[in-house]
Amino acid sequence: RKEMTAACTPRRRIINLTSVLSLQEEINEQGHEVLREMLHNHSFVGCVNPQWALAQHQTKLYLLNTTKLSEELFYQILIYDFANFGVLRLSEPAPLFDLAMLALDSPESGWTEEDGPKEGLAEYIVEFLKKKAEMLADYFSLEIDEEGNLIGLPLLIDNYVPPLEGLPIFILRLATEVNWDEEKECFESLSKECAMFYSIRKQYISEESTLSGQQSEVPGSIPNSWKWTVEHIVYKALRSHILPPKHFTEDGNILQLANLPDLYKVFERC
C-alpha cells in the first residue's frame, strides 16, 4: 500500500510523520478485503446518474454509490500519497476573496446577518489561508500566491479535474471546517474536505460537464463527458487505489441488486 500512486510524480518523498502513518493504519484496520476484491475485478455496466452506477462482479449485479466511493478513493490517495502530488495549474489565478464571496452568497454556506458582513468574512478567509499557504503547498500541492490567488490544485489521478463549480464552497470550508490546531486532526479533516471537493457530486455535474483533463479519443470531437470520466478514470482507479471500509457493506453505498443465475431462471419461465 505504501507504493500506491494514482498520479505520476517525478520522485517520491518518504513521509514518516506519526500522524500520517496513524491515518494510514486506520484505513488498513477499517478495510474490507472482500469489497476490495469485488472492486478490483468488477465489470463496469454503466452510470445511472452522477451519484449511482451499476457494476457486475462474477454472477452478481451491484449498485454502487459513485459519490461515496470516489470520496473515499480521493481521501485514501491523499493519505497514502501525502506530500507526493503533482499540481493542476489553473488556467488563470482565482482570487480567494472572490471565491469566498461566491460561497457566502450560496445558501449552502449557511451565512446569516449575525455572522457579520460577507466582505469582512471573505477578507478573513483570504488572510487565514495565506498564512497556511506554505503547508498547503508542501503537503497538498494546493498553491496560493502572495496576492491571495489560488493558482494550483493537487493532481490526485492523472487526467482528472475536480468539478470546479464546487471550488468556492471548498475554499470556505478549508477556513471553517478544518481542525487547524492538532496535526493528525488537521491532516485528516483537510484531506476529507479535499476528497469531498474532488468527489463526483450530482449538484455540480450536468450532462455537459467534463471532468477530464483530456479530449476524447476521436479527433475533432467534444470533450469527454462526465460519464466517460466516471467509467474510464474514476472506476479504473477504484480497481487498484481503494481499500473500501467495512461500513460500506452496511450503509447502502454498495448494494447487491441481483444474482444473475437467479434472473436467468426467471427469464426461462417467461
Rank of each mutant, 00 (worst) to 15 (best):
W52A: 07
M101R: 02
Y235A: 10
D181W: 12
L39W: 15
I171E: 00
E29I: 10
F140N: 01
L17R: 02
A7Y: 14
E127D: 07
E127K: 02
L61I: 05
R239S: 14
L104D: 00
P50D: 09
L64Y: 09
T176P: 00
N84G: 08
H32D: 05
E193T: 12
L54G: 08
S216Y: 08
E108H: 07
M135W: 05
L104V: 01
S106L: 02
D98F: 13
Y198W: 11
S91L: 11
T18M: 12
L174W: 00
E26A: 10
G213I: 07
I79C: 06
L153W: 00
K184C: 06
I125T: 13
L142E: 01
I15E: 09
L255C: 05
L167F: 09
A6T: 12
S109H: 01
C270K: 14
R12C: 10
V87Q: 09
D262G: 10
G148E: 06
C270F: 15
L150M: 12
D251G: 04
A6V: 08
C194R: 00
Y124H: 01
N49Q: 11
H241C: 11
A55C: 06
V161C: 04
Q256W: 14
R173V: 00
L155Y: 08
S199P: 01
V126L: 03
A53M: 13
M101V: 13
T249A: 09
G252N: 06
T9A: 10
F197P: 00
L150P: 01
N253T: 08
G152M: 01
C194L: 13
L21A: 05
G120F: 15
E268I: 13
E183T: 02
C186F: 04
L155G: 03
T5H: 13
Y139N: 03
V48P: 09
E113W: 15
S91T: 10
W52I: 05
H32E: 05
G213C: 06
E134P: 02
L142K: 01
S212P: 09
H241Q: 08
L21Y: 14
G86L: 14
T67Y: 14
R11F: 14
D98N: 04
Y75G: 11
H32P: 15
S106F: 02
V87C: 10
T67M: 06
P50N: 12
R201F: 12
Y264S: 03
T249L: 09
F170I: 00
G86C: 12
K227L: 09
V34I: 12
F267L: 08
T249E: 03
E231V: 12
E146R: 03
G110R: 01
S212W: 13
G252W: 01
P95V: 04
V45W: 01
S240R: 09
F82D: 05
Y124F: 14
E119R: 04
K132G: 03
M196I: 07
L88Q: 03
G116K: 02
D98E: 06
E231K: 13
H247Q: 07
I254N: 06
W226L: 05
D145P: 01
V126H: 06
S206P: 08
H42F: 10
L238A: 07
L23M: 10
P163H: 07
L255F: 12
E143G: 05
L23V: 13
K131A: 11
W52V: 04
E188Q: 05
V230P: 02
L167E: 00
I27T: 05
E134L: 04
V45L: 03
M135I: 03
E3W: 15
V161N: 05
S189A: 03
I171N: 00
G148W: 04
A175T: 14
Q30F: 12
Y204F: 04
Q51D: 08
N159Y: 04
V161D: 09
I14G: 08
E147Y: 13
E146H: 06
G220D: 07
V161H: 03
A237P: 02
K130A: 15
A83W: 10
F187H: 03
R12S: 11
A53S: 07
Q24V: 12
F140W: 11
L238G: 04
M196G: 08
L54T: 06
D251K: 05
P154D: 00
T229N: 05
T249M: 08
L35A: 09
I15N: 13
E143L: 12
C47W: 08
P10A: 09
D251A: 06
V34F: 11
N149V: 07
V230S: 09
G166D: 14
I233F: 14
K131W: 15
I171C: 05
A53R: 00
T210C: 05
L61Y: 00
I222P: 10
G148D: 10
P107S: 07
C270T: 15
L64M: 06
M196H: 05
D105N: 02
L61C: 09
Q51P: 13
E108C: 05
Q215G: 10
P154Q: 00
M4S: 11
S189G: 02
V178I: 08
W228S: 05
P261L: 13
P261W: 15
S240E: 08
S221D: 07
P154S: 00
K60Q: 11
E182N: 05
L156F: 10
N259E: 06
R201C: 12
R12I: 13
E250I: 15
A6L: 13
G166W: 08
P154R: 00
R11M: 14
K2F: 14
A53K: 00
N253I: 04
V234M: 11
A100S: 09
C8Q: 11
V34M: 13
E119F: 15
E147V: 07
S91D: 11
S19F: 12
L174R: 00
Q256H: 12
K130C: 14
N28D: 06
P107F: 14
L167D: 00
E29Y: 14
F140M: 09
G116C: 15
V230R: 04
Q58G: 11
F82V: 01
N65R: 02
S212F: 10
P219W: 13
K130L: 14
W228I: 10
F128L: 03
A94V: 06
E92N: 04
I222A: 11
A103M: 01
S206C: 06
Q24G: 11
Q51I: 13
G220I: 12
A103Q: 01
Y62W: 05
N65D: 06
I200M: 05
L35H: 06
H42N: 08
E183I: 03
L155C: 06
Q215T: 10
K184T: 04
L142Y: 04
L172I: 05
R201G: 13
E143H: 09
E33W: 15
P93W: 01
S240D: 07
Q51K: 07
M4T: 04
V178N: 00
T112A: 09
Q76S: 13
D138H: 03
E250W: 15
T66F: 01
T66D: 00
L190I: 02
G116Y: 15
A6E: 11
L102C: 03
F248Q: 11
L153R: 00
L190F: 15
E231Y: 10
S22I: 13
L104R: 00
R11Y: 14
P162V: 01
F187S: 02
L136T: 04
L63K: 03
H241M: 11
I222N: 09
H40Y: 13
L23D: 15
W111M: 15
F97T: 02
L238T: 11
L243M: 13
A237K: 07
R11K: 10
L155D: 08
E231P: 10
S216K: 05
S221Y: 09
R239F: 14
P107Q: 07
E217Y: 13
N16D: 05
E177L: 13
F97D: 02
K68F: 14
N179M: 08
P261Q: 07
S206A: 04
Q256C: 06
L238I: 06
L64V: 07
A100D: 00
Q51N: 05
T229V: 04
R13L: 15
P168T: 02
D138K: 02
R36E: 13
D181L: 08
G252R: 09
Q214R: 10
V178G: 01
Y160C: 01
F140V: 07
E71N: 07
K246I: 05
L61G: 13
L23W: 15
I242W: 14
V48A: 13
L167K: 00
E143F: 12
G31K: 10
E193V: 13
P219K: 12
M101Q: 03
H247N: 03
A94C: 12
S91Y: 11
Q51A: 06
Y198G: 00
L243E: 09
H32M: 09
L155H: 07
S91A: 06
E231W: 05
